[in-house]
């Protein structure tokens, strides 16, 4: 067990080093950071919401979007670089199981996404806090406005987003284990993310009565195979919500995310075990 863990950690360490050296990671990180920072300059726009909410929506939106792009493209690239460059031949000829290899890849990619989420969340938190302090200083002291920015909520959001990206990575790895080309893995992975974002529609439809058994069966399978990625998007409620989110609801989201993550990693390992290198 200890030896297996050590091998996985070495795979994830090398995967992490490889990923952070990629220009693609640096490019998306800089782009997302620029998006977060630029949100302050857009405060002249008014879409009918409060300014802090607009800044939060804009910045966290960038984190959700570019995080997903990074999770799909980078994970597929890290997997296929080992296969196409044939470094996997060298590694898998050693006493390293396919599952250890895949889990190592997962941990390395997840660690990179962890850095991505933490850096952006720290930037976003700083921007929100600074602007809120500025607005509070300008407000009438008699109004006794309470600060809306919630640091604890931001930490919870970081964990939820990291978990959400972990689910995406595990799906992309399962697809990559089956796919023959990088392009196929990226396209199907991206479609899976879109399906996950829209899964709530299938959930709603499933709750409505229908006469078609086939349609009902399709919805039942869809709502279980595809994770609801939308449920992780609680940025407003967690970071700016005055009432916050019920701990029980967050626990359900976390458990659901972990269940999907483990299920897709298991599936990926089973598929990869049969793959010819």
């Amino acid at each position: 067990m200890k030896a297996s863990l050590r091998r996985m950690l070495w795979i994830s360490r090398i995967t992490f080093l490889e990923a952070v050296r990629q220009r693609f990671f640096a490019f998306l990180l800089v782009l997302s950071a620029a998006m977060v920072l630029s949100s302050v300059s857009f405060r002249v726009f008014d879409f009918g919401h409060g300014e802090l909410k607009f800044i939060a929506d804009f910045g966290f939106g960038g984190m959700f979007f570019f995080g997903s792009v990074l999770a799909v493209v980078m994970t597929a690239q890290l997997f296929f670089s080992e296969i196409d460059n044939r470094t996997a031949l060298t590694l898998l000829a050693k006493p390293l199981s396919r599952a250890e290899f895949l889990l190592g890849k997962f941990c390395g990619a997840w660690a990179v996404l962890g850095v991505f989420v933490v850096v952006l969340a720290a930037l976003q938190g700083t921007v929100l806090w600074a602007r809120e302090q500025e607005l509070l200083s300008l407000a009438d002291p008699a109004a006794k406005l309470a600060p809306a920015f919630n640091l604890e909520g931001l930490l919870q959001l970081v964990l939820l987003q990291w978990l959400r990206l972990g689910v995406v990575i595990s799906i992309v790895l399962a697809i990559s284990a089956l796919a023959r080309t990088f392009l196929f893995a990226v396209v199907v992975g991206a479609l899976a993310v879109v399906a996950g974002q829209l899964q709530w529609i299938a959930q709603d439809a499933f709750l409505r009565p229908t006469d078609s058994q086939l349609y009902a069966a399709f919805l039942w399978v869809s709502t279980r195979v595809i994770p609801n990625l939308q449920q992780f998007n609680l940025a407003d409620a967690l970071v700016l919500g005055s009432t916050g989110v019920d701990d029980g609801a967050i626990l359900v989201v976390v458990l659901s995310g972990l269940a999907y993550l483990l299920a897709y990693l298991t599936l990926g390992s089973l598929i990869f075990r049969r793959r010819e290198i």
Binding site: R86, L89, T90, K94
Partner: peptide, 8 residues
């Protein structure tokens, strides 16, 4: 094992 045309 040393594979053919190894890449690291």
């Amino acid at each position: 094992f040393l594979p053919e045309a190894p890449y690291f």
